[in-house]
């Protein structure tokens, strides 16, 4: 009886078949999103802020490592999210952003240690941290909407890792953009708020993963 029902389902599905546009390669789509974000973000930053602060900070090796790690976290997490959105791709893609993420946290943590784990910088300034939190959380909204708009085309069958990695990529992209507005070294509060903002973005994205990703 049940097998007969399966036959009916097959006939129904075949009778409703419409031609579909094949999805492009996940890597290509990930690079497209990264290129758009890099292009638009780059133009906005060049016009509004300039590169002087960023280049000045890059001269410090630890900060350079931290910034490269943030950028790599964003790139690898977005690529992994696109790869995992398509059935049959290895779940090991989820491990791709692990190393850059650890490098990011380690380099920032080292900065905190160098600052003596104080809650504020040597000059006593500690007032920007909430702005950093707001920047990462706020910038993640348009970035995330764009990313989910592209990811939902795949209708992921396992939306949790796709949403988690996608939002990690989005939050890391926002954190990287923040580096252009962040002319001072990290304190413990900075690091905690940066990571809290990233965690919040990942949490929101994973909680709303089904409607956002139109999971199949």
């Amino acid at each position: 009886m049940a097998a007969v029902q399966t036959e009916r389902v097959i006939v129904t599905l075949a009778s409703q078949l419409q031609p579909v546009r094949r999805l492009r390669s996940p890597l290509l789509r990930a690079l497209l999103w990264l290129a758009v974000v890099g292009g638009v973000g780059g133009v906005l930053i060049a016009r509004e802020v300039g590169l002087a602060i960023f280049l000045q900070r890059l001269a410090v090796p630890r900060v350079a490592v931290e910034d490269v790690a943030i950028a790599l976290t964003a790139i690898t997490a977005v690529i992994a999210a696109f790869e995992l959105s398509v059935p049959g791709h290895s779940p090991r893609w989820a491990l791709l952003p692990v190393l850059p993420l650890l490098s990011w946290v380690s380099a920032s943590g080292l900065g905190c240690l160098r600052n003596g784990l104080s809650l504020q910088r040597a000059d006593g300034f500690a007032g920007e941290s909430p702005h950093c939190f707001a920047f990462i959380a706020g910038a993640s909204v348009p970035l995330g909407l764009g990313l989910f708009w592209m990811l939902r085309r795949a209708r992921p069958i396992a939306p949790l890792p796709v949403a988690a990695l996608g939002t990690l990529g989005v939050a890391a992209s926002a954190a990287f953009m923040l580096q252009f507005f962040h002319p001072f070294d990290v304190t413990v509060i900075d690091l905690a708020l940066h990571l809290s903002a990233v965690g919040l973005v990942v949490l929101v994205g994973t909680v709303w993963r089904r409607p956002l990703l139109a999971a199949a």
């Binding site: 579909v20 094949r22 398509v86 059935p87 049959g88 199949a216």
Partner: peptide, 26 residues
Amino acid sequence: QDTLLTVHRVRHTYDPSRPFCPWLAA
């Protein structure tokens, strides 16, 4: 039946340059 329905919904994600069975098995 649920798998067949999902195959129908995500059939646009299959890449003919890759093997079919891992896609279906996933």
